[in-house]
Write a protein that binds this DNA or RNA. Structure first.
Length: 648
RNA sequence: GCUGGCGUAGCUCAGUUGGCCAGAGCAGCCGCCUUGUAAGCGGCAGGUCAUGGGUUCGAGUCCCAUCGCCAGCUCCA
């Protein structure tokens, strides 16, 4: 009896019933067979040596593909668990999936792993690889599985929770065995442990069972595994290079900002160069908002408890706020409670409500660079990316329900324009819908979700649905950008809010003089300016586009006698709005050029005898290997002034 | 917040199993050099070894606590 196998190129071949992926691969070619790690049979993944018993579309999964690496990493996780269980008697194991770039496995162990343990585990893994043990697939009835894993409560919990994706269906569980080690697993796996060619254990850390902080904390070991030593080395090199972009490191080296411990965690101070960068971003933000129909407002940093009561923040968000301040109390008289603001919206709402509003004023767009404080849990702080004090380019738009769809569409166009101006090219969106904990009417939520979805479609922005991820007061769109080394960052957020207008009883007069409730949109384009600077630093590795660079041009006199001319060149550039540093230090030209380059200044001008005489400069632009000499001063100034101009 | 790791000069780091003076490079300051495209030369100064307790004849080194940082988990209105 034979079966018909369809290959990815559409060709069909006849094989005997029970043919394996390996046999098919070998039949196609020895190199394919060598690179094969698994096989897809219709929509399922099979081990290379698992018999195929029906007509199917088959494709060979090779080791140098993401799917292939997934198999490699999953097998590496098993081998690691095997090593750990053998080396640490009495320990138990939970789950160990392949993840982006690697794998992990969670263990219940008596003592957390030390870095030395990781090195020893890695050695043990190398022995298992050396032994080249075959991975063997098996199936167990649920009841048998429960007794096989009697000593492993986490495995039992997985078995009891059918459909967990860990190789469990309603009656049987699939298992994999190599040597003495048995694990619950859906597979597929490498044919044998010897096929694991390159791996490295990265770190260990605590991780809650099932990701729930109320459940026991397990010890997780992260590792990475690749199809070859070369691929592993390339990955490690990539990690090193990413570390060189770290905004905390560059922020220090470029003297942009710091986090003095004296201030408290998560609170940054901006040094002069960082201040320029921020200022440039903020000026751009004010300018573009003004040109897009926004009105600039300013609000204070604290407000009475009543306000936060009305807005719902004290109810829904108190844990994220700095604790209460009590003022004007004493002598038995109760004080007035104040809170530092975690958001700007209630203030903007009060501006809206400061007088009666007409439909003629809508949409009313109030914009502020509003500084907020959030009491982030200490473990989540991360440089500028996650700080406790930060400034949002925040706006609240009050609109009629009829205008909402148009407003959202315009808003998306605006967002994308801004992000492109800062040098980002690739965008994706998430549409987050109603969470469990929410305020407002379900029908209104649904309507808002529809508006957001249609605005995304109108803007032609690819998006994914994030069910239940919305804010407590409304659904939202988050826009993610892709940076220079391919990482995704969430930047912009657009949130529809049907609740706050209700809470604050907002209204406007319609054309037939009835009262209507406006709809509110919260939105931030750059999000937090702090975080945005962090992302820019990492995106550009500190080499900012010229309009953002704190120092745009360094002017270097060759010798002391050229100092006056250097100052003159500097003044000409300053006159044209270029930020210039004339480096008159008592050092060699080479040293000063080196400093300008390591500080990532976009342009370096060197002036000597010939330049003084001819009214020229030597110009070296960042990224160019060789300088140009003898450029007429006026031309150089013109070129640099043009390069330094903001995008709009 | 939880688990683990780390904290020596402004920065990057050395400091053997606890044992006389805590060291280097860069940055800083003072001189010399007057320089043409990625580090010229010499000198000086700079640290109560995160902080507070403890063990010890003796602590940068060992123990405890606190603060801060790093990685991960949880969280991010």
């Amino acid at each position: 009896m034979s079966i018909r196998i369809t290959l990815p190129d559409g060709s069909q071949r006849e094989y005997h019933d029970g043919v394996t992926g390996f046999e098919i691969a070998s039949d196609i070619g020895p190199r394919l067979a060598k690179a094969a790690v698994a096989v897809t049979v219709d929509s399922a993944m099979y081990d290379l040596h698992r018999p195929i018993d029906h007509d199917a579309a088959v494709s060979i999964v090779t080791e140098n593909t993401e799917a292939g690496r997934h198999v490699i990493r999953h097998s590496a996780a098993h081998i690691m668990a095997q090593a750990v269980l053998e080396m640490f008697p009495g320990s138990t194991y939970a789950i160990g999936p392949a993840i982006q770039d690697g794998f992990y496995y969670d263990f219940g162990v008596e003592h957390p792993f030390t870095p030395e343990d990781l090195a020893r585990i890695e050695e043990k893994m190398a022995e298992i690889v050396e032994a080249d043990q075959p991975f063997e697939r098996g199936e167990l009835p649920i009841a048998d599985a429960l007794s096989v894993f009697a000593d492993h409560p986490f495995k039992r919990e997985i078995i009891e929770g059918v459909d967990s994706g860990e190789g469990v269906d309603s009656e049987y569980v699939s298992t994999y065995r190599n040597a003495e080690f048995l694990d619950l697993c859906r597979g597929p796996h490498l044919p044998s442990t010897g096929r694991l060619k390159a791996f490295h254990l990265m770190r260990s850390a605590g991780a809650y069972w099932r990701g729930d902080e109320n459940k026991p904390q397990l010890q997780r070991i992260y590792g990475t595994a690749w199809e070859s030593k070369k691929a592993l080395d390339a990955y490690m090199l990539q990690l090193e290079q990413a570390a060189l972009r770290d905004h905390r490191k560059l922020g220090n080296e470029l003297d942009l900002f710091s986090f003095p411990p004296e201030l408290g965690s998560g609170l940054a101070v901006w040094h002069p160069h960082g201040g320029i960068l921020r200022r440039e971003i903020e000026d751009y933000s004010r300018r573009t908002h003004r040109n897009h129909g926004y009105e600039y407002v300013v609000t204070p940093h604290v407000a009475k408890a009543d306000l936060w009561e009305t807005s719902g923040h004290l109810n829904y968000y108190r844990d994220g706020m700095y604790p209460v301040m009590e003022l004007d109390g004493g002598e038995g008289k109760p004080g007035q409670e104040y809170f530092v603001k975690p958001m700007n919206c209630p203030f903007h709402i009060l501006i809206y409500r400061s007088r009666s509003r007409s439909y003629r004023e809508l949409p009313l767009r109030l914009f502020e660079l509003g500084t907020v404080y959030r009491y982030e849990r200490s473990g989540v702080l991360h440089g500028l990316m996650r700080a406790r004090g930060f400034t949002q380019d925040d706006s609240h738009i009050f609109t009629t329900e009829e205008d909402l769809a148009d407003e959202l569409k315009n808003l998306l166009d605006f967002v994308l324009m801004v992000l492109r101006d800062f040098g980002f090219e690739e965008f994706e969106a998430d549409l987050s819908t109603r969470p469990d904990k929410y305020v407002g009417d379900v029908d209104l939520w649904k309507k808002a979700e529809e508006y957001l979805a249609s605005s995304l479609e109108a803007a032609d922005l690819p998006y994914q649905l994030a069910p239940g991820e919305g804010a407590f007061y409304g659904p939202k769109i988050d826009i993610h950008i892709k940076d220079a080394i391919g990482r995704r960052w969430q930047l912009s957020t657009i949130q529809v809010d049907f609740a706050q207008p209700e809470n604050f009883d907002l209204e406007y007069a319609t054309s037939d003089n009835t009262r209507q409730r406006p709809v509110m949109i919260h939105r931030a384009l750059l999000g937090s300016i702090e975080r945005f600077v962090g992302i820019l630093v990492e995106h550009y590795a500190g080499a900012f586009p010229m309009w953002l660079a704190p120092v745009q041009t360094t002017v270097i006199p060759v010798a002391d006698r050229h100092q006056d001319y250097a100052e003159f060149v500097g003044a000409e550039l300053t006159e044209r709005g270029v930020r210039v540093h004339v480096d008159g230090a008592d050092e060699t030209v080479g040293e000063k050029i080196r400093r300008a380059i390591t500080q990532k200044h976009p342009a370096v001008i060197v002036v000597g005898d010939k330049d003084v005489e001819a009214g020229t400069v030597g110009l070296r632009l960042r990224g160019e290997d060789n300088e140009q000499r003898g450029i007429v001063l006026g031309d150089a100034v013109e070129t640099l002034a043009e390069m330094a101009r903001p995008p709009r």
